[in-house]
Design a protein around this nucleic acid. Structure first.
Lengths: 202, 202
DNA sequence: ATAGTAGTTGACTAGTTAGTCAACTTGAAT
DNA sequence: ATTCAAGTTGACTAACTAGTCAACTACTAT
């Protein structure tokens, strides 16, 4: 019953792109509406505020990405290969974004999180929640690699946090430097952090 | 000759604190002036824009920090101890900031850099310039540690970039999570990345 | 003491921003 | 075909924002 609409989705897409290619602070509701092709009255019909929209958009993006993450971190794949797959995926995706937007953009979660952490507690909480999820993929992979004797990681949660922070840094760094090649060290750095036990691998 | 003033310095202090405790985007010229106790006319007497002020402020902060960095990374100190000293200093400073502002703030360079990278090219260039300087401290330390056979780092510049990205991530992470304990792993993580050759150290 | 330089002030404009609302349109169920 | 829920619209306000400027004040070198 009633009229149908994809304005909600259009607004979520618009806010993600504007924040990612610019910043949260410089993204105004007017800009979002213009980009989405939606009038402001409709914006306020669906959302209370920019932060409310951002929370919904970030959550929606997370739900989409979930399937992909489940595939990359599939238990059917050996643990160290999962990490390789993830590094490969991250590099590929950042390359696509660079092609599309003419510049390296990094991970939106980290950019937004850092920017709004002191000002938008609810949005920041949502981002933290998603990050915990992401970290769990790493943690279970590390745990498995450890119990298979591939790496030395008696505390997988701690190692996961370490590796996650490292990725956060690399992606932020790539964004600031506008340089994809920053990410090339990712897999090597991960292995250093994980304490890879060098076996016959050359 | 003429009237004397410390408005320039007050404005630089104010903008640094506002950006660090909030964000670049949400910091307005009016807020800066209010915090500095300076009228807007005076602001425009000294600076062209917010970005102009931020560039000057970031540069001034860097010049101040330089002496401290020179002390921490003194060639008179053994290389791995320099890294220990730096980790110790970072932790201490973040603790002070937390006490003062009631929350973990992370490193302003990374926060600002990530936020403005697509929007304020000059400010971003200044930040990159300063980061290159910081990375050099790490690089020379790593180079020295390598030639002393303490670590395996045949390419000190690459290792320095890796460790630097790791710090970037840790500090961003600590800010987002508002949790100092995130930084506790810093030294251990550094040593993993550096490929520390485990000697008689327990 | 005074002239000139360096810095200050408050009142101003014009544009942008978030947020509101009553009238309107669309679709589907009856 | 009518009704009504769901969604749209554009015109509106009030607050905030960057940026300007002419008159003013404080200092200091002569």
């Amino acid at each position: 019953m009633g009229r149908v609409s994809d304005a909600r989705e259009k607004l979520m897409d618009a806010v993600m792109e504007l924040i990612h290619t610019g910043s949260y602070g410089s993204t105004t509701i007017d800009h979002i509406c213009e980009k989405a092709g939606v009038k402001k009255g409709s914006f306020y019909y669906f959302f209370h505020s920019k932060s409310d929209l951002a929370i919904a958009a970030v959550e929606a993006r997370f739900q989409e990405d979930r399937k992909l993450a489940d595939a990359i971190f599939s238990p059917a794949i050996p643990p160290l290969e999962r990490i390789h797959g993830m590094c490969h995926y991250l590099l590929e995706r950042q390359g696509e974004l660079q092609k599309k937007h003419g510049r390296v953009l990094g991970c939106p979660l980290h950019s937004i999180g850092s920017e709004v952490s002191t000002e938008e507690p609810e949005l920041c909480a949502k981002i933290q929640e998603i990050m915990v999820h992401h970290r769990k993929y790493l943690e279970s992979t590390i745990q498995e690699a450890h119990s298979q004797g591939l790496i030395h990681a008696p505390d997988p949660a701690a190692k996961a946090e370490m590796v996650f922070a490292y990725y956060e840094g690399l992606l932020t760094h790539a964004r600031i430097q506008n340089d994809l090649s920053v990410l090339n060290e990712m897999e090597e750095g991960t292995m250093s952090l994980l304490g890879l036990k060098e076996t016959a691998s050359a």
